[in-house]
Amino acid sequence: MKPSLVCVAALALAVLFDSRAMAQRRGPVRGDQPAARRKEWLASLDDGLAESRRTGKPLMVVIRCVP
């Protein structure tokens, strides 16, 4: 295979895998908020701060990549 074809093939594969990875991530991330609410996780910082004020308890905020 010529070097230019290798580059094109590699680029195509990279784009393909990146798209697949993005799609795989997008579903769980977007689907996480209702799932998190069912488990009584809050997904809004404003809601969390309001709850902290109401209860007088400190707030634990988890930032994570994929649920």
Partner: peptide, 22 residues
Amino acid sequence: MRLTRIDDVDLNLFEFDWDLTF
């Protein structure tokens, strides 16, 4: 509470090692 989108986060409040996934 749980945040899953870094683009909505005040990075100066939640300043951390951004190479982490948790």
